[in-house]
Design a protein around this nucleic acid. Structure first.
Lengths: 223, 223
DNA sequence: CGGTAGGTTGATTGAGATCAATGGCCGTGG
DNA sequence: CCACGGCCATTGATCTCAATCAACCTACCG
């Protein structure tokens, strides 16, 4: 991973490189590459909101802890995806985000982003659209059956997860517990459904490795 | 409702009035007041996204229709609340929004808003925070019991719904079917739980009218 | 090579869906 | 004004799916 390589993420318009005199590329908007190991926190609930993170490599989970001390995962993020929009309003991080695997991120100061935007009003609609895009991700999964939820999640992951072959193969970065937590199911139910999908020749599941052998059927189950 | 009265909604900074020569107040950003009757649509899924609506009076529901033709309500909006942020990214409305009662809205062209913002860079962070705020409303209700969901919804409505006396009394703008749809429950379950809450002296429920007789207990049930 | 976290599978239970019947409210039209 | 019809709400009986509790297996890591 080259720290100075131009992004191809959603911040590309802010990140285009130009060659300066000494032939090293500069970004328009200052960023910093950071590395996180498994279980290390990128940001912690209630810490002052300062940075937006774009995942370059790896995967993370975002969660809150309820009054009973139970973890509630509300999102997973993969390479190319952005973390922090949800915290702009509050001024502090509204969830804790930890790395599920070794993870590389691009760190970007929100204040610098705002200052930069003031010099580029033509990007204004662009950045609003980026934040708006997140709003479309609110899901209705709470009404679906366990099988529908898991089918939908596998399809989603097969598209978003790093290294995944869309609708064919993927390596889950999270365990059954975390999948269940995110979907509102228990780890046992996740395990049972994956076994059932395998019995029905829709997927092959071997711990973290998943191969989707019948994408059409899986899509159908996901509704 | 005075069309020219200054807003006290989240768009207030764009809406402050000044007296011009002839003593009629002007808004900084052009808006238009519109009236909708029950069941009339403010906007329809897939129509070109053009306007943001701020509810001045009344209540609306936002829903999508799934492949099986089932309505899926993902939000209710009340006086003071804003509709349209979710559609900025897509360029078209990503849900259909219909009035639950007679409803008055303030209509605001998104293009005009963007143009206006370009003249007011100091409001960049403000508007980003407004959209970000919506992201915080994504809920975890899918893991709660039916009783928890309904308790939480009653508390939420008692704060947000027009004419509601916070934590005391409210008149529901929607029927049991819509409540259930939103919460991922059936109308029968909603009815049963409301009856149970009444039997336990936590609320009085008479069709659309709800009086919260034991707010502490209700809060406790909602977790 | 042993310990532990993660994963699978079985038996039982329970919350909420489903199916069904009844009653009340309200708008419409005679 | 009242009668009718439709929608909405309530309540009961039954069923189903996923949670829970429990046992056991397997991969991986120090």
């Amino acid at each position: 991973m080259n720290n100075n390589a131009p992004c191809n993420c959603s911040f590309m318009p802010f990140c285009k490189t130009k060659l300066s005199n000494n032939q090293t590329p500069d970004t328009l908007l200052a960023t910093r590459t950071r590395h996180f190991v498994r279980n290390q926190a990128l940001c912690v609930l209630n810490d002052k909101f300062q940075n937006i993170y774009i995942i370059k490599k790896g995967a993370v989970k975002a969660y809150q802890v309820d009054r009973n001390g139970n973890e509630r995962i509300h999102a997973f993020y993969f390479a190319g995806e952005t973390i922090g929009y949800r915290s702009i309003h509050a001024g502090h991080y509204i969830s804790t985000v930890v790395a599920l695997t070794s993870t590389v991120v691009c760190e970007l100061s929100y204040d610098h982003l705002i200052d930069f935007l003031k010099t580029k009003p033509e990007l204004y609609n662009y950045i609003l659209a980026l934040v708006s895009k997140q709003l479309g991700k609110m899901s209705f999964m709470d009404v679906a059956s366990a099988e529908q939820r898991i089918a939908a999640m596998l399809i989603d992951l097969s598209i978003r997860a790093e290294g995944a072959i869309p609708m064919r193969e993927l390596t889950l970065p999270m365990n059954r517990q975390d999948m269940g937590n995110y979907l509102g199911l228990t780890a046992e139910t996740v395990s049972r459904i994956l076994s059932r999908l395998q019995k029905n020749d829709i997927i092959e599941a071997e711990r973290k490795f998943i191969r989707i052998t019948n994408p059409q059927k899986l899509q159908q189950l996901a509704q």
